[in-house]
Nucleic acid binder design. Structure first.
Lengths: 195, 195
DNA sequence: CTCAACTCGAACAGCACTGTTCGGGTTATG
DNA sequence: CATAACCCGAACAGTGCTGTTCGAGTTGAG
C-alpha cells in the first residue's frame, strides 16, 4: 500500500494542478464544446505548456475530463436509493443531480466531436444504464406509460435536462426553479394517457 | 416594374446556383454547426470561389441560410389553422412541420456561434411568437397546465423536437415514429396534473 | 541546503480555414 | 455568333489552434 508501483515521482503540488485543469476543462467544455487548450489552461490558472506536461494531447484531456464528469455523476447516482416508487425515485434523482447530469451531458457532447464514438459509448454506458433500468422498471410496474419505448423516454429526459441547463446558462430560467420544472414536466410526460 | 433597379445583370443560371448553395448550407449547418465553407461548396457541387462570389463572407452565408430556414418554417406555420382546440392544433403543428422546425433550430444553433445575438433573436422572433401564442392560449383555455410558465413549455417543445432530430440522425429513432412520439410526449407533458 | 521535480513564457513548425487574386474556360442571352 | 456574365482550380497571405522545444525561474521533498 505504501508503495504505489508505477509512479516513481509525483509531487503533491503537481497532482493538485491536474485537478485544477480537469475542473477548468469540465467547466469550459460544458459551456463551449470546442474550447481551445489555451482557454482551458487560462481558466485553470496554469500555463499551456504545463497542461501539455500532464496530458499529451487535447484528445487525452477531453477524455479525462469526460471520465471525471461521468464519474462524478455516477457517484451521486450510486448514493441514491432507486428501489422505491419509480415516480418518487425519478423525482429524487432529478432534484439531487440534474445539474451534474447536465454538466456531464454537455461535456459528453463536446467529447463526441473529438473522441472515437466507441470510447464515448463506453464511458457513458454505466450511468445511462442505471437510469434506463429505473424507467423500464417503472413501465413494468405500471407507474410509467408503456405506449412509448423506454429509450425514447430516457432520450426525452436527457434532452429536457440539457435544455434546462442551456436555459439557465442563458438567463431564461432561474436555477432554483429548474429542478421543479424538470421533475413536473417529466413525470407528466411519463404518466399513462388514460390516468 | 420591368426594370428592377439595383440589379443590372443577374443571369438565370446564377440564381439557381445561389439556391443550391443555400440548400447545401442548411443541410451542412444543421448536421455540423461549424461546417467549413469548402464543405458547403462541395456539397452544393460548386467551387469555393463561386460561393464567395455570391456571399461576401461566411457570416453572410450563415445569415442567409438561417433566414431561409426560418422563412421555410414560417411558411408552413402560416398554412396551418391554429384557431381550434389547442391540443389538436399543437398535434397538427408537430406532425406537419417538426422536421422543418428541427432543421431551422439546428441552423439557428449554428448561427448562434458566429452571428450577433441580436440578429439571431430578430430572425427567430416571428415563428417563435406564433408557437408561444398557441401555448398561452391553451393555458388560458384550460387545455394546458398553467402551473408551469409558458416559456418553459415552449422551451421543452423545442428541446424535445431538437432531441428527436438528433436521435433520428444517429439512427436511434425511426423518422416515421418521430412525429407520433413527440406529439404524445408533449401533449402528456402539457396536460393538467389532476386530469 | 540541495536537487530534482515542476512551472512558465517565448517562440517554432505544421495544419486547417478564411478571404482574395489571377487566368483561362463555359454558357446564357441578345 | 459574339459578348458579357459566370464558373472554377490554383495559389497566395493572414489568422488561430495544436503540439513541441528551449531556457530560465520556482518550489516541494529529503
Amino acid at each position: 500500500m505504501s508503495h504505489p508501483p508505477a509512479k516513481p515521482t509525483l509531487r503533491a503540488d503537481a497532482q493538485q494542478n491536474v485537478t485544477k485543469i480537469l475542473d477548468a476543462a469540465v467547466a469550459c467544455l460544458s459551456r463551449n464544446a470546442d474550447a481551445s487548450v489555451s482557454e482551458i489552461a487560462k481558466t485553470a490558472g496554469v500555463g499551456r505548456v504545463t497542461l501539455y506536461g500532464h496530458f499529451p494531447s487535447r484528445q487525452a484531456l477531453v477524455d479525462a475530463a469526460l471520465t471525471r464528469a461521468i464519474a462524478d455523476g455516477e457517484h451521486v447516482l450510486q448514493a441514491l436509493d432507486l428501489t422505491g416508487d419509480p415516480r418518487e425515485a425519478l423525482d429524487a434523482l432529478i432534484k439531487s443531480s440534474w445539474l451534474l447530469v447536465a454538466q456531464a451531458t454537455a461535456v459528453l457532447e463536446a467529447a463526441q466531436a473529438t473522441l472515437a464514438p466507441g470510447r464515448v459509448q463506453e464511458l457513458h454506458a454505466g450511468p445511462a444504464q442505471r437510469v434506463d433500468d429505473l424507467i423500464r422498471r417503472g413501465q413494468a410496474d405500471g407507474a410509467f406509460r408503456a405506449d412509448l419505448p423506454a429509450n425514447w423516454l430516457t432520450s426525452v429526459l436527457h434532452h429536457v435536462i440539457h435544455g434546462a441547463a442551456i436555459d439557465v446558462a442563458k438567463g431564461r430560467l432561474e436555477s432554483t426553479d429548474a429542478a421543479r420544472f424538470i421533475s413536473q414536466t417529466i413525470l407528466a410526460a411519463y404518466s399513462k394517457a388514460g390516468a
